[in-house]
Design a protein around this nucleic acid. Structure first.
Lengths: 340, 340
DNA sequence: CTGAAAGCGCTTACAG
DNA sequence: CTGAAAGCGCTTACAG
């Protein structure tokens, strides 16, 4: 089993009896009116026989662009980001653009240079839900950049966001409409735009209704365990007293944890406690009762982001796009129990 | 806002008052004993001032390798693959290797060429859970290839697999040990090595115990809905009769669907029906009762796969590695109800 | 310790 | 319709 060196376009040209230029023309499908059909066939045959594939590094170098985008997400084991990635990748594939994925090794600690780690040459960057510092590193790259689910930074940058404010508003009004007045907020312990908006809008909506108020707020890692622990702290502290009747959670995983906490404390959801999530993850309809939550168009977000990046690379000026969020009322919310 | 052309190593050299060769030596950290400290400093300063980043396409072309691996997974919205990817990416980052991710746009239809779509130059391929046809395309690439969670194909290929057979065996024996004799199998409707092994080993284990048998088998898409539908068919067909007392599911999502079906039919889990999953996804401990399932070392699998690929690129001969699977007995399994 | 030069494999403007 | 040649930006063997 000897190692056969990888064939080059020169080898193909030799075998087909044509010049390297002709091979390139055929491979890039720019041959019409320039290369005779017989030679086109000869080139294709030689390509197949040799199992030739163009050297992408050479092509990128020559063309000055790589037709490749760097996609940066905080974590992939999070279904929301995975769906966003899927949307971005679908668009990229359709436009014949490659995708290099970069996930920072750890959310803590200084973010290493994504470009050094990327290995491949990229033309632009699509970055999601980045903390401010990580974003600085990305901007320094000097590459065209589109941000997803991030703080809009004025007309100079391209941003594609879900309408977090409206989603949060819908949750608040849904619960207020059911009669709830004592709320607790189970917040994600991540300092990013999306979660800051949720906290702010929830506070605003409650402030607008007399008698409504936030009786507790807890931060937790975005996991079932995190939600469980935080909800236990919130609910245990208020046993028998004027505790919250509604738990607004920043994420479905937190909401699932909250439901588990309620069950352990003997509180029925939704009869004694209403719980809402965010994202409409798979888990939202896996549990019983199924979660009332806010569906964010994760795939569309990724797709729109990739479209925006390609437009940017083509010379469009950056803008901010906002995609709608939708409340999905399900079985984890109901009117509060008759009060004390 | 004029477009400033990206600086090259030539620009850096000029600014630092050295040759291009010196710049390269400094950037690749090969300068010790060859470049004076003062000039090293000058180069670093020039790099910082210009915001220079090496052109990776040019470097790859010159070096003849890209230090980049192509990772191919069937879907990323599946938590198992996302975890596998995370493990592979962690190792790659540690070895300063880039990762290009390729996810076939649709499982149906002919798989497009992952290399054409990849955009970037890659040195090797890490492919997971591929159907046979997709695998053929990958092998044709002529690149070093490591397969994950796939049919071992003899000493010529590198494979890293979880011990699916042992995991299935543990599930079967756990249920047999609890006293179950009438089983149903909720299988994934995907024709791949991993699921074929599960069906085969389950059948073998039941065949080894007198009186034990498979009373039903259904195939379903790997979703909660899929599991719900399949379980309804299995359970509804057997109402009051000698239906299964244990449902062995190929995946946690199927198992969650099965639990929902049982609840709708008024069957209590685990008192009247035991249900098992596979993978130990987040959802396994999100639902109540928490699922008895088989934990597969997804991250380790990805990490081991990337290590194997790097070893292959370094000249090692391919081999098959098997990683352990572990039964996690939780609350969805119990002895069967006293039988008729 | 330093620099000039060759060449990786491709694509395209140009000459025929 | 076809081919010879230049050059993308980098790295390294070589000459000084």
């Amino acid at each position: 089993m000897s190692i056969r060196p990888r064939p080059t376009s020169r080898d193909v040209a030799e075998r087909a009896g044509v010049s390297q230029a002709t091979v390139s023309l055929v491979l890039r499908d720019r041959w019409r009116g320039r290369v005779s059909p017989a030679r086109v066939e000869a080139v294709r045959a030689a390509v197949a026989e040799l199992g030739y594939r163009p050297n992408l590094a050479a092509r990128s170098l020559r063309l000055g662009r790589a037709r490749t985008a760097l996609v940066v997400v905080p974590a992939l084991t999070n279904e929301f980001f995975a769906r966003m990635y899927a949307g971005a990748a679908r668009v990229a594939a359709g436009e014949d653009v490659g995708v290099v994925l970069y996930v920072p090794p750890d959310e803590r600690g200084p973010a290493p240079d994504p470009f050094a780690s990327a290995g491949a040459a990229v033309d632009g960057v699509l970055a999601s839900s980045m903390a401010a510092e990580s974003l600085a590193t990305l901007s320094q790259g000097g590459l065209p950049l589109v941000m997803l689910d991030s703080e809009p930074r004025g007309p100079g940058t391209a941003t594609v966001n879900p309408d977090i404010a409206d989603g949060t508003r819908q949750v608040a009004r849904h619960l207020l409409g059911l009669g709830h007045r004592r709320f607790a907020h189970l917040a994600a312990e991540v300092d990013s735009w999306t979660f800051r908006v949720r906290a702010r809008v929830l506070a605003e909506e409650l402030a607008a209704v007399p008698g409504a108020r936030l009786v507790a707020a807890e931060r937790a890692p975005i996991t079932v365990r995190g939600g469980l622990g935080a909800a236990e702290r919130v609910l245990a502290g208020a046993r028998g007293k004027a505790g919250p009747t509604a738990l607004v959670c920043d994420d479905d995983l937190l909401a699932v944890g909250a439901c588990k906490a309620a069950r352990r404390l003997g509180l029925r959801v939704p009869e004694e406690l209403s719980v809402t999530g965010f994202d409409d993850l798979t888990v939202a309809t896996a549990v019983e009762p199924e979660l009332t939550t806010v569906a964010l168009p994760a795939e569309d977000l990724g797709a729109a982001g990739m479209h925006a990046l390609l437009a940017l690379l083509a010379g469009t000026s950056p803008a901010t796009t906002v995609l709608p969020a939708a409340l999905l009322p399900r079985a984890s919310t109901a009117p509060p129990p008759p009060g004390p």
